[in-house]
């Protein structure tokens, strides 16, 4: 008798597991709950009643088997109920992960800041220190100390803003006075860049701005020669524009360097292959910066002996570099701060 009962209980377990797994609705759930746990007609009640007829020695075994079934039924029903609740929640909330994201506001650095940082980072990685100075400068440091003689036409190349009531001052036309101040305060070897705002009295148009930015550099040490200048600038332009870009030097003139040069880079747009290229105008070369060996008079003006030390200096306009790199057609866009422009860079 006990074996028969155990067999029936096992049968009931298998049936329950199958049936509870198939529960899809509250109705299914109510039905199965009724079928197994109803106090009057439930399957569990039926087994408990039959326990009375089991002979005493087999009672513990039989009771244990019924209890196992009871635990199984309770657990199974709980799980089914939870499953139904979860199912209900899912059906009531509409989830579509392909809905568009919300517009999360994103800001950007100004194009000029981004270009300037990139140039600075390259020189910092080469061991240059960043030096700063005044935007309202002494005329002496902006011109005379830099070997621009008074009443010399070389001053015309840099149309200058002067300050009312302060005849010795002007708005710096380049960041070179930073180098003058640095050289007067430090002894070689020295290796600096001087980035910043500069001012020239030009009316704003597509290629001119009364305010613009430069990054200038200076290295002074013993035995520095012209090839060091070329090598250094080549490192810079390859880091900035790419390793396949080449540089060439052309003779030029700046009062504070001798010899002086313009540095052209091979056209990064057409590599000299497009005679109609807008960036290099078909020449294959783009004028990018001015440079040269520091004029001995500039060194001696800063109490550095030009018979012992020599050095090189270079300077580039950030606006020009940015305009060439991104084919920006009008310099004024950089100062309008129309966010349709500013949102494209940085």
């Amino acid at each position: 008798m006990i074996n028969e009962l155990k067999k029936e209980i096992d049968q009931a377990k298998t049936t329950f597991l199958k049936e509870v797994g198939e529960v899809q609705s509250q109705e299914d759930f109510r039905n199965i709950k009724e079928k197994y746990t109803s106090r009057k007609k439930g399957i569990l009640t039926g087994f408990l009643q039959r326990l009375k007829d089991v002979p005493p020695p087999d009672k513990p075994t039989a009771g244990n088997a019924v209890n196992q079934l009871k635990v199984l039924v309770e657990t199974g029903l709980n799980e089914a109920e939870a499953r139904l609740t979860a199912l209900k929640a899912t059906k009531e909330t509409h989830v579509d992960p392909t809905l568009p994201p919300f517009v999360y506001p994103v800001g950007r650095a100004h194009l000029l800041s981004a270009i300037r940082k990139r140039a600075e980072d390259i020189f910092i990685s080469m061991g240059y220190e960043v030096a700063h100075g005044y935007e309202v400068e002494l005329e002496d440091y902006n011109f005379t100390t830099l070997n621009f003689p008074e009443y010399h036409p070389s001053r015309d190349e840099q149309d200058t803003f002067f300050i009312k009531d302060f005849p010795d001052y002007l708005l710096r036309t380049h960041t070179s006075p930073v180098q003058i101040r640095y050289m007067k305060q430090h002894k070689p070897p020295l290796k600096i860049i001087s980035p910043g705002k500069v001012f020239r009295k030009d009316d704003p148009d597509a290629t001119h701005s009364p305010v613009f930015h430069q990054v200038e550099g200076l290295l002074v040490d013993k035995n520095i020669h012209f090839s060091h200048l070329k090598g250094t600038l080549e490192l810079f332009i390859k880091a900035f524009y790419g390793e396949n870009i080449n540089a060439r030097l052309r003779p030029s003139y700046f009062p504070f360097t001798e010899p002086s040069a313009e540095l052209d880079i091979s056209c990064f747009m057409c590599f000299g292959k497009n005679p109609l290229c807008k960036v290099c105008k078909g020449t294959g070369w783009i004028e990018i910066l001015g440079c040269g060996m520091v004029h001995p008079k500039v060194l001696s003006n800063c109490d550095i002996d030009p018979e012992i030390y020599s050095g090189f200096a270079f300077g580039m306009g950030i606006e020009r570099i940015a305009m060439l790199k991104y084919e920006v057609s009008d310099m004024r866009m950089m100062y309008d701060n129309d966010l349709r422009f500013n949102c494209q860079f940085g």
């Binding site: 220190e129 290796k191 090839s227 060091h228 090598g231 030097l249 040069a261």
Partner: peptide
Amino acid sequence: YDKMESAIPLSLNTVVR
């Protein structure tokens, strides 16, 4: 000027600021 070669100066600042 096209005959100019490229060399890298080994100068370093004595203080890194």
